[in-house]
Structure formats: C-alpha cells, structure tokens
Simulated assay, not measured.
Amino acid sequence: MTRKVAVVTGAARGIGLATTKLFLADGYAVAMIDRDADALHDAAGQLQDVHPVVCDVSHPDQVDAMAAEVAGAFDRVDALVNNAGVADFGPIQEHDFTRWRRVMETNLDGVFLMSQALVPHLRETRGAIVNIASISGLRASTLRVAYGTSKAAVIHLTKQQAAELGEWGIRANCVAPGPVDTKLALAVHSPEIRAAYHDAIPLNRYGSEQEIAEVIVFLCSGRASYVTGQTVASDGGFGSTGIGLPALRGQTA
C-alpha cells in the first residue's frame, strides 16, 4: 500500500474529527480511534477511506489490540495524532486522587501508550507524531490543577520523543490549542466567560476546530520535515498576553 495512513485518537468529534477530514482531503487513509463506539461509528459512517477502532487509550490491553487491528487493516502508519483527552475543572482542594488519575490516565498515559505501540510502524515510514496539549500546559490557570499538569507533561513527553526517536527519522511535535469553539465550550462557557476570553485573546475570538486541524496536519506533512520537538500554540495570541489591560488596547498612551 502506497497511500499514507494517519492514526487519530479522539476522532469521533471535535478537533479529532476535523483532523481526520483534513487528512482525507490530503489523500491519507485514516484509522479513527475513540472509546465512544456509537459516536465513532456514526462519524466514520459518513466518511470514506477510514477504519474505525473502538479503543480506550488509557488501557494498555486495548491499545495493543488497536495496534494489531491497524496493522491488519493497513500495511503502514505515517502519522499518529494523540488527540484523545478529558477535562475536569475544579478548585485544587476538591481534586482527590480519583479525579487526578482520571485526567492523567487519558491525557498523559494515553499519549505514552499509543506512541509506544505505534513507534515500530512509524520507524518504517520515518513518520510523525503530533501530541495535542493545551495552552493550559504552557501557562497556569485556576481550576486546572490536573488538566494543566497533564498537558504540561505531554509537552515534555513530546520533547523526549523528539530527542530519542529522531535517529529513526521520527518527528514529534505538539500543538497547544487555546480556546476553541467546540460543542463542549459552547455548552460550558457562559457569555461572561466568552467575553472575558475575547478580551484576553489578541485576535478577539475563539479558534475553530478546522484551524487547529490545519496546524496538526501541517506538522505531520513533509512541509514540516525539519521541525521536531516543538510546541506550537494555536491560540490567537492568548499565550503572549498577561500584562496590560484590554481596555487600553489600541490606545496611544
């Protein structure tokens, strides 16, 4: 098989589904990975050249079975996008160990397990890994003790992968999205929260799933052939702010 193959986790919706569609538009076949079987099969049923695999990336046995199924469906893997993640926001004093582990096992353990399982295939193609972190992994914020810490760890894991896998031609990079207009964000962000984000983001808006997918697919492509170990904050400039008042924007003094 000469057609390139991408493996995308959390592919049933949101950024993962947008990334899947963009890979397809670029001529890839895609293994769509998600633990929500109904949503996964609904999404995959509307697409061609995809192979859905139900898998919880936090379970080593399921990841091993997924890798075997992907190897059976395709004879190569050129790109791995570790997008699956969970969010659990709340005050630090209310995060017990159960909540902490729930976030870590998907957001961090899942990235590790998926990468370890597919590295042998990526070696054969000199492929690429893109891990999805968050702006919360680059700058601390309230209510995100587990989430932000997990994403910061993903950023360092990406550097570790780049340092060690580069000798086999495998590139590893990270995308750190800022606020994105997903269904979840629309459901949980009040008008006041959205207005506050707009004030804090230099581009004055949320990003789209498509915009994040464009960065992911670029980093997997030959156009980024000398880029590895990097974290790209696709955040409308949110990570660059932190001083100054939004009310002063555009003022001359």
Rank of each mutant, 00 (worst) to 15 (best):
A128H: 03
I129M: 03
V130F: 04
V130I: 12
N131H: 10
I132D: 06
A133P: 02
A133L: 14
A133V: 04
A133H: 07
I135C: 09
S136F: 11
G137I: 07
G137V: 07
G137H: 08
S141P: 01
R144W: 03
A146I: 04
A146T: 01
A146K: 09
G148F: 08
T149C: 05
S150Y: 08
S150L: 11
S150K: 11
K151M: 07
V154T: 10
V154M: 04
V154K: 02
I155A: 05
H156I: 12
K159E: 15
K159G: 15
Q160R: 10
Q160Y: 10
Q161Y: 13
Q161D: 10
A162L: 14
A163F: 09
L165Q: 07
G166Y: 05
G166V: 14
E167T: 15
W168V: 03
I170L: 04
A172S: 15
A172F: 03
A172N: 04
C174L: 09
V175P: 01
A176K: 08
P177R: 10
P179M: 02
P179R: 00
V180E: 07
T182K: 06
T182G: 01
K183D: 11
L184D: 00
A185W: 06
L186G: 10
L186K: 13
A187F: 05
A187T: 02
I193C: 03
R194T: 11
A196E: 10
Y197V: 06
H198E: 14
H198F: 02
D199E: 12
D199A: 14
A200Y: 00
A200F: 02
A200C: 01
N204D: 08
